[in-house]
Design a protein around this nucleic acid. Structure first.
Length: 303
RNA sequence: GGUGCCAUAGCUCAGUUGGUAGAGCAAUGGACUGAAAAUCCAUGUGUCCCUGGUUCGAUUCCAGGUGGCACCA
């Protein structure tokens, strides 16, 4: 029998978790979270981790599985997810993946190139160089190391430049030679379900959800990790704005306003990414029955 | 009821000594292979409140109207 991964995706705050839980219960299976921030056990309120009852009812993977101190990446996510999927598919025919991290979802569905992790020391050095000498310095360095990639890279984006340089230096090969740009084969089928709603309504829900997070104690949660604010895992909407408030740079209301805005921006960015993916079948979140009908139909075709 | 001030982008406002307009915020589109909730790029037509007058030409000046605010009764 064919194994199928149902990927439930959509912008933040749309109601994915809730729906995923229902679908998982329907198929009596487990959920893998594809959310780059819910993996951190130190964060809960600001990352909208599903409520305890849901986590109890349905087995969730990659939620609170790591620490904010851990190094993590899309590639690690690919490896972790594939391992978990293998074990789920041992006993079940369907697995659910849900979460809004676009690159993570693609890493599992399409694969990510086999490139070694960059040495953290080297990365730190390169960042320092960038801060001292500016972006032009990075451009020149990359031009020397990998002219082919230099031609196609976004030259205003220091992260792209930095990453290419660090890979060239750690592997001794041009970064572009390691990029295969081809999708990996998976031993299971993938069914992508997108959920979305009217933009104004989505934004209202996002704004409201931020107010609720504040009521639930997001400020206290942020305060507990304030000292670690330099960690990449805390360069996260909902936390970075409160850190700016703690620093006295902005007032509390401003911080809340910025959390709302940045969450809206994030939702928009997700929609931009998903729009490109023609394999997604879109539904309204309230149409649970239609979604189940659709997945059942698709699963039958595959059997 | 009287007097004064205001009416310009979704919001707050600037501006045009009369030649049909621009900032901030918000919003929108896009890029994306180990930091991705990250990072980067791009986008400003709006009856300049309405009607009439002056003028070659009015969003700008004048009159009236409408709405808002303030003060006086």
């Amino acid at each position: 029998m064919n194994k199928t991964l149902i990927v439930l995706l959509g912008p933040t705050g749309i109601g994915k978790s809730d729906l995923a839980s229902k679908i998982a219960q329907y198929y009596q299976t487990e959920i893998i979270s594809s959310d780059s921030r819910q993996i951190y056990r130190e964060l809960s309120i600001g990352t909208a981790v599903p409520p305890f009852e849901d986590l109890k009812k349905v087995k969730h993977h990659l939620v609170h599985s790591h620490s904010i101190h851990d190094y993590y990446s899309a590639s690690r996510f690919e490896q972790d997810s594939l391992k978990i999927l293998e074990s789920i598919f041992d006993t079940k025919d369907v697995a659910i993946m849900t979460g809004g991290s676009m690159l993570y979802i693609d890493a599992v569905c399409k694969g990510i190139d086999d490139i070694p992790d960059a040495d953290p020391k080297l990365r730190a050095e390169l960042i320092e160089e960038y801060e001292e000498k500016g972006i032009e310095h990075l451009r020149m360095q990359l031009k020397g190391l990998d002219p082919a990639y230099y031609d196609q890279v976004d030259k205003k984006n220091h992260m792209r430049l930095l990453h290419a340089i660090e890979i060239c230096l750690t592997t001794g090969k041009p970064y572009s030679s390691l990029r295969t740009q081809t999708a990996k084969e998976r031993p299971f089928s993938i069914l992508k379900i997108g959920i979305n709603r009217d933009r104004a309504e989505l934004y209202q829900r996002i704004n409201h959800r931020v107010d609720i997070m504040i009521q639930q104690g997001l400020e206290e949660e942020a305060r507990q990790v304030y000292e670690l604010r330099h960690l990449n895992s805390l360069n996260t909407v909902g936390y970075k704005e409160l850190f700016a408030f703690f620093d006295g740079e902005i007032d509390r209301d401003k911080a809340i306003e910025l959390i709302k805005r940045n969450t809206r921006h994030y939702a928009r960015k997700q929609l931009t990414w998903f729009r490109k993916d023609k394999n997604i079948t879109w539904f309204k979140p309230e149409n649970e029955k239609e979604i189940i009908n659709f997945t059942n139909q698709e699963l039958e075709v595959k059997i």
